[in-house]
Design a protein around this nucleic acid. Structure first.
Length: 958
DNA sequence: ACTTCACCTG
DNA sequence: CAGGTGAAGT
């Protein structure tokens, strides 16, 4: 019966499925009720999955949903007699925490507290890949202390942490002006982030001017001194100005020097003016009135927290002091969240990996607090940030957000020096002048610092220049009201322009990168070709064809790129990088290339490829805008190689960082790496229906999974071999030696070197990572050497911490294996020093993946049923199918796998059919009815491509 | 005793 | 995604 299964597998099923589902022993031990029912439904709780409508008519409803719950929640023993640990202490969901964990201390404290109050409990690690959608809603969920309305989103953001702790004390402004020497980074952070908002918190809700939020509140609140009021008002105001400057400066940097110079002189005048005018109190009424008029223009200005901080700090004390503090903060923060802190797995307090993200979020929220409309500004800002990172490549660290803060600061030294520019308190005209001149000045600075990058897009620049010129003129002459329009225009313009520019840059980078990769891969290919050819003795070329076609009749495919390419793809573009890429990383899409749509696979319109120096198709609307609009990513679809939507500044920084490095050597290499589109692969293999039974052969592996296995220079080389090394030598299903389930440390079949693994390649493609690995390896090797993966030389276990990247990788692996054994997992995570905990974690991940998977399957199966499908065979899954899409979104959100393996499609189809049949036959009313399906599905695992082991691969997921 | 898995919950 | 729990295997 289980003879098809490898030893481990067989055992698994023997253990799990041999039993008769109706066996009594399955009945929940604690169930003392409804014995009769139990007999029929030994595990009634399984019915929980079953929608009510599917319950047996006679089945006691109470049993269905309640039984399990009852036994669990009612059972007294669940709460140990720990007086200090009442059930209510259950940690609230992280997302629900009233205070956003803006920084480590916050969360740590919380965790610790909980830990102490409760019995030792494993701290929850969230190696959450960081689903973008996960709105760290804590921010937004915070009470709007001031009743600040929609527009004034500010109070809703992270700063509340601080405002809550400090503002409530009734000394709203005290701290604001003389921040007490708060201990630890927390205090400093709060100062940094909360400074601006502090005054807001205490404000009475009476405020009616939503848009004015801060100012009005400040004035309306019981402030003790007029000075304070003014200062408060001014702070933000000045900041706003600064922000705007930054935002606009971006654009301005394109201005010609002459313009800038001219503007500068003007600006200087204004500065002096402001300095003098500062002490002068103008009527608040006037100011407010003026502000109200320019509300929209102002709000966006509130975005820059950094500037705010700076401007607020600088006036009262010498700039060096606050600056130092800031730097300290950053450094502290930067060093703290090292995810790789090697601690014996469990014992160590796990780090909340998403931290970085959260930090970033807080930053963003800060930035965005002004208004929703500020979005374009944000983007712009992000772009700036990224560029900053880029420019500071050498020192790029790990903390994106904070780093950026710093960088921003550095970029504007003058800002610090000069007393925070006074907001135009006197007249509106001065306001506009002031602002514009300031902007110009800032632009100049920007220009200087980033002139280097100007190389790209001269055309655009000129274009921009013109527009800017216009805007500038307009700006100078305009009144306050004009500022509003100006701001909008600028925003729009900047956003658009920057997007283009960024795109260009990115494109260039991508190309260079590709070249590099290609180069390395070529070398690797050469090396491996021999090996591969040797390994793949049994020529399977015939085989690949045999399971072809069973094209889903009922589902016409637009892109229906069912099976991309057959084994031998005669690509017209032999030398194309595609072929190279595909050889090694068939599924992995080029770093920064975002395929039009994953479903499109290798469609002819490789237009998706980035034409050098071209801007991406702006028009095409991103079908999947569901993801939080990633920073830096231009509004277009092009995503940097980044995985998930959460493109972190760090990632970008890194990408950019690499750029210059490769710039030199690359050019000569492969010539222009103009991505070519491969012709639509002839519809080849569709999964063989009979496959499982007929031949023990592998799933229609390659044809399918190899999107562009085309253009393989050496026909003798079977892609499949590369991808599934050892497959032929030891086919899993038939061979007891199969590596997949093989419990022996040897694991998978003789792993020949995978192309990607060649040191040269590694080094070439990612020097940093590679060296990092090596270093780490050396470091760890001394103390503990994990036997996990003896195969790959360059890859040594460096950490026991699973990172989000590993999670992503695991998800991708799910396309190949649904039931990986722990040994397999270990094999495919050679960089992980496994221990019980992380092993369990990894296993758990897959468990979670399966859970999601099966839920989807059931859902769609029922849907099919409800749609009137009568025969399970009528169910056909294609790459365009909803389920596939859903699954892809879940496991391959960022399309790291350029193409979903055909076999996976097949598995899904089978699963769906099984579920369909089971439901159709009402088996879903039986207990454990899914087990049979699980069993079937478990057999459909295939070998995970070797390249998954490559550190390079992992890196790609970053 | 230890491990793995499914299910449920947050 | 992770924690917790029960069931079942080894």
């Amino acid at each position: 019966m289980n003879h098809h299964l490898p030893p481990g597998q067989e055992r698994l099923f023997a253990a799990r499925h041999h039993q008769d589902p109706f066996v009594w022993s399955h009945a929940p031990r604690r169930h003392t009720v409804l014995k009769g029912v139990q007999r029929c439904f030994p595990r009634p709780f399984m019915d929980n999955l079953r929608p009510p409508q599917f319950r047996a008519p006679d089945e006691p409803s109470s049993l269905v949903g309640g039984l399990r719950i009852g036994t669990r929640d009612v059972a007294p023993p669940y709460w140990p007699p720990l007086p200090l640990a009442p059930p209510t202490l259950h940690p609230p969901p992280i997302g629900a925490l009233p205070t956003a964990m803006a920084h480590d201390e916050e969360s740590d404290c919380f965790m610790l507290g909980e830990k102490l109050s409760k019995k030792p409990k494993r701290i929850r690690t969230r190696v959450d890949a960081g689903e973008p959608r996960n709105s760290y809603s804590a921010f937004s969920s915070l009470p709007n202390l001031c009743g600040v309305s929609v527009n004034a989103v500010r109070p809703g953001s992270a700063p509340n942490l601080f405002s809550a702790s400090q503002s409530f004390c009734g000394l709203p402004f005290v701290n604001y002006f003389n921040p007490p020497p708060t201990a630890g980074s927390r205090g400093m952070l709060s100062e940094l982030f909360g400074a601006h908002t502090k005054p807001v918190a205490p404000c009475p809700p009476e405020d009616t001017v939503a848009t004015m939020g801060v100012l009005d509140k400040v004035t309306s609140s019981n402030v003790h001194s007029a000075d304070a009021v003014n200062s408060v008002i001014r702070g933000p105001e000045a900041d706003n100005v600064l922000l705007r400057e930054i935002l606009q400066g971006r654009k301005r940097e394109i201005l010609t020097m002459e313009e800038i110079e001219a503007a500068r002189s003007l600006h200087n005048n204004n500065n002096s003016y402001k300095g003098a005018a500062e002490p002068v109190e103008t009527s608040n009424e006037d100011t407010n009135a003026a502000r109200e008029e320019s509300v929209t223009a102002e709000d966006p200005r509130c975005e820059s927290e950094v500037e705010e901080t700076m401007s607020q700090n600088s006036p009262r004390t010498d700039s060096p002091e606050p600056r130092k503090r800031l730097e300290n903060i950053v450094s502290v923060i930067r060093s703290s969240p090292t995810p790789n802190t090697t601690v014996n797995g469990c014992k160590k307090r796990k780090l909340y990996l998403p931290q970085q993200h959260e930090a970033r979020n807080s930053y963003d929220s800060q930035t965005e607090e002004g208004e929703a409309a500020a979005e374009p500004d944000n983007k712009t800002r992000r772009l700036e940030e990224d560029e900053q990172v880029e420019s500071r490549a050498p020192e790029s660290g790990e903390e994106g957000g904070l780093q950026i803060d710093l960088s921003v600061r550095r970029r504007s030294p003058e800002t610090q020096r000069a007393p925070s520019p006074k907001p135009p308190t006197s007249t509106s005209s001065s306001d506009s002048n002031d602002a514009s001149s300031y902007l110009l000045d800032y632009a100049q600075r920007l220009l200087r610092t980033q002139e280097a990058r100007q190389r790209e897009n001269d055309l655009k620049n000129s274009d921009l220049t013109e527009k800017l010129q216009l805007l500038r003129n307009l700006n100078l002459n305009s009144q306050v009201t004009d500022l509003e329009g100006l701001a909008d225009v600028l925003k729009t313009e900047i956003t658009a322009s920057l997007a283009v520019i960024i795109d260009t840059i990115v494109n260039k980078y991508v190309q260079q990168r590709k070249l590099l990769t290609k180069q390395a891969e070529v070398a690797a290919e050469q090396l491996n070709r021999d090996i591969a050819s040797q390994l793949m003795e049994g020529s399977r070329s015939p085989r690949s064809h045999k399971m072809l076609d069973r094209t889903p009749p009922n589902m016409p495919r637009l892109n229906g790129m069912p099976a991309p390419n057959g084994p031998l793809n005669l690509s017209p573009y032999p030398g194309s990088e595609n072929s190279l890429n595909n050889l090694n990383l068939p599924h992995l899409r080029p770093p920064m290339y975002k395929p039009p749509h994953f479903f499109q696979g290798s469609l002819p319109p490789m237009g998706g490829m980035i034409p050098s120096g071209q801007t991406s198709p702006y028009g095409g609307m991103e079908p999947e805008q569901d993801e939080a609009l990633p920073l830096v990513v231009t509004p277009k679809k092009k995503r940097h190689k980044v995985t998930d939507s959460r493109l972190t500044p760090r990632t970008v920084g890194r990408l950019l960082e690499d750029f210059p490095r490769y710039g030199g050597p690359l050019p000569g290499m492969m010539g222009p790496a103009s991505p070519r589109s491969s012709p639509p692969p002839p519809p080849m293999s569709h999964h063989p229906h009979h496959r499982p039974s007929s031949f023990p052969q592998p799933p229609p592996l390659l044809p399918v999974s190899l999107p562009t296995s085309v253009a393989i220079p050496n026909p003798s080389l079977h892609e499949s071999n590369l991808l599934y090394p050892g497959y032929y030598s030891t086919h899993r299903p038939s061979s007891p030696l199969d590596g997949r389930r093989d419990e022996s440390p040897a694991g998978p079949p003789p792993p020949h070197h995978h192309p990607l693994l060649h040191p040269a390649l590694l080094a070439a493609s990612s020097p940093d990572t590679f060296s990092r690995f090596l270093h780490g390896a050396d470091h760890d090797r001394a103390s503990d050497c994990s036997p996990a993966d003896p195969h790959y030389d360059g890859v040594q276990p460096t950490s026991s911490t699973l990172t989000p990247m590993h999670l992503r990788k695991a998800k991708l692996m799910f396309f190949f294996v649904r039931y990986p054994s722990s040994s397999v997992l270990k094999t495919y995570f050679p960089d992980i020093k496994f221990n019980k905990n992380n092993t369990a974690q990894l296993v758990k991940w897959f468990s979670n993946f399966r859970e999601f998977y099966y839920i989807q399957m059931e859902k769609y199966a029922r849907q099919s049923l409800s749609e009137g499908i009568k025969n399970a065979d009528d169910i056909s899954v294609t790459f365009e199918s909803e389920i596939i899409r859903a699954l892809n979104l879940h496991y391959n959100r960022n399309n790291h796998l350029e193409q979903i393996p055909e076999h996976f499609r097949y598995v899904v189809e089978q699963t769906l059919r099984e579920f369909f049949k089971a439901i159709q036959e009402q088996k879903d009313q039986e207990q454990s009815w899914k087990k049979a399906i699980y069993k079937i599905i478990a057999r459909l695992d295939e070998q995970v491509p070797e390249y998954f082991k490559s550190p390079t691969f992992l890196e790609q997921l970053e």
